[in-house]
Design a protein around this nucleic acid. Structure first.
Lengths: 194, 194
DNA sequence: CTAGTTTCTTATCATACATCAATTTTTTTA
DNA sequence: TAAAAAAATTGATGTATGATAAGAAACTAG
């Protein structure tokens, strides 16, 4: 009873759910404790869940034809993560979800989420606004990719996500920025000079 | 009365609104007829509307520090367009919206949209799903930027959006793909060889 | 139909970043 | 703490794409 409210509060912050609603939502959330290196989802599989990160760090990762890995998203405390393209469309995953730092997460299925959104309009609003924020971030990232050099993108990344920088390896950041680890290493050397 | 149902049908397809709902929604839509070259929105301004394209072609365009233009989104018939980062957050626009081909569009304000979403849950679901689709497309684009060559991105673009290719200039496409017009020209030459 | 503007193409040269190959540093584990 | 593994760095060289400049082709408007 007490823990119910705790996790609902952590995830949904200041949304004023009724007691019944909170209990109902919580019954659809499953808590998972995972370790660094664990794979939550493999490319090619169906994506039926999204995950709320309570602690730790995960990433979604795309492996291209030539075997190179690309990081689409990092998720730390309070972020949600999934292969949303697949999650929303019921196509198969093109990405995998990998745990980068031991994590505590909560998963919810697409079915449960859709049903809850119909029952509790505030929840639909929550997920819509979350999606809007994520969309805006993706737009900024595309803009950065189109208009900035690798050095500028790195500077922007560590400025925007200082907490993520501390939780991931440089080669993760490189794969997020779209450069090789060698190039990132040279960029970092450059920046310490300034 | 007849026209009301026509435009609601065009925009919202098979959503079964009541007659009252249709009329109410339609009262919040404003029809605009615009010409090639018209600017719907300038960077730096507040973004209070999004636009449904009934006919014609528009783009959102970001001008970077060095004066280069980058195309974030094209919108043809049945697409929505805006600077969504600003639209959703009430920050100022970083992009402008430009009419590329004479167009007929319908605009709706953020306020009206939010209010309608509260009154008509189906509408909130509609906008949420629209956002999910747009999010997925952005994700694919980021993935392409990270993993594909300019040539691959161009091939993928004309394959995915054959209708857009016909409505826009090559330099628009170049600015969407993140290459110079010269590079795009060489790519096109290459591809006709194959 | 002609002149003017816009768009596209071609060529040369420059550069940011990739690739390949070691080597060093850091982290993990026994 | 030593050995092994993982991650980061550095150097030499290659390549895709950018920058600049000029000209050709395709629209547009008088």
């Amino acid at each position: 009873m007490h823990t119910k409210n705790t996790i609902i509060l952590e995830i949904f912050k200041d949304i004023p759910f009724s007691e019944d609603e909170s209990i109902h939502i919580e019954s659809k959330l499953e808590k998972l404790t995972i370790k660094k290196g664990d794979i939550l989802l493999n490319a090619g599989k169906s994506v039926n869940h999204q995950y709320f990160v309570s602690d730790g760090c995960l990433r979604t990762c795309y492996t291209d034809n030539s075997g190179k890995e690309h990081t689409i998203q990092f998720a730390i405390k309070n972020w949600w993560i999934s292969d949303y393209t697949a999650f929303f469309s019921t196509t198969k995953a093109v990405m995998s979800i990998e745990c980068i730092q031991d994590a505590v997460i909560y998963k919810i299925s697409r079915e449960d989420m859709d049903a809850l959104c119909v029952e509790i309009p505030q929840l639909e609003t929550f997920f819509r606004k979350k999606m809007e924020g994520a969309f805006a971030n993706f737009q900024k990232r595309i803009l950065g990719g189109l208009s900035q050099s690798a050095k500028e993108r790195y500077a922007s990344f560590i400025n925007t996500y200082p907490n993520i920088e501390q939780s991931v390896k440089n080669y993760h950041i490189a794969s997020y920025l779209g450069v090789t680890t060698e190039t990132l290493s040279r960029i970092r050397k450059e920046l310490t000079k300034d």
